[in-house]
Amino acid sequence: MSLLMEQALNGVQLGVTLFLLAAGLTLIFGIMGVINLAHGSLYMIGAYAMAAVAAKTGSFLLAFPAGLAAAGIAGVLMEYLVVRRLYARDHLDQVLATFGLILFFNQLTTILFGRQPLFVEIPDFLEGSVMIGGIVRYPVYRLAMIAVGLATAIGLYVLIARTRLGMLIRAGATNREMVRALGVDIRLLYTLLFGVGAMLAGLAGVMAGPILSVQVGMGEQVLILTFVVVVIGGIGSVRGAFIGALAVGMVDTMLRAYLPGVLRQLMAGPDADALAAGLSAMGVYMLMAIVLLVKPQGLAPAHG
């Protein structure tokens, strides 16, 4: 029982991390129509900025906002200098240009920080693990990740459902031309939105820093899974990204945790383990295929 609960928490934690990445990606894709392959680079920038500031000052409380700011600024610059020229182009050009950005950012990071992964310590107040409900021991830092992720999800919901900016975002997702015709400065809105998306990716990177290895190319590792989340949730829908992220996090974790045990009932140990590893690696993609088959628009499409 405690194992099941721990794995469920692991699933939620992986889910909220994916959500932070997917939320930005889905907003940018759904509203601006831009496929931003360099979204993973923003995640990397957040993690590196955080690691660098933490190493210099030794303070997590300074490093945290620094990572967010760096990712946000990089995002705004990226939009202003490159992506802005791509809105009218077709997706192939966008993919090409943003893929170029990945190479650019990776090389720049290699020049600035070298190829050796950086060390980031967990802040003292988040160190260790706690008992939850007397049944399961769980690392404090991962609980904090879940809390931050959920808080961000609520914040995004309020932003989109309750504010004027959110209204414009929703309007932009439904009918871009009409928003422009009504005299809204769509360019500013786009830049702002890109910055917000970048900051969310940066937040994911900042939080992942202390548990993963901060290194060149870390963004591409999560990018594919993020795209899966966006497709499952429905392109352009933040609500969909949340549902999709939790579904992917949960399915991936549960398959990895329990499939070997199930298969071991049916066949010899080593064979079961190898087969289970293969099947669980496919799990999220099978989930995507099933969702696309049943609901081609995704679980919670934006353009209802």
Binding site: I211, T253, P260, G269
Partner: peptide, 20 residues
């Protein structure tokens, strides 16, 4: 127990719980 992870895996929380 034998666990095969993925070459692109970054999160090992599920494996940690299995080890425990």
């Amino acid at each position: 127990g034998e666990i095969y992870t993925r070459l692109d895996q970054t999160d090992f929380a599920a494996e940690m719980a299995q080890i425990r």
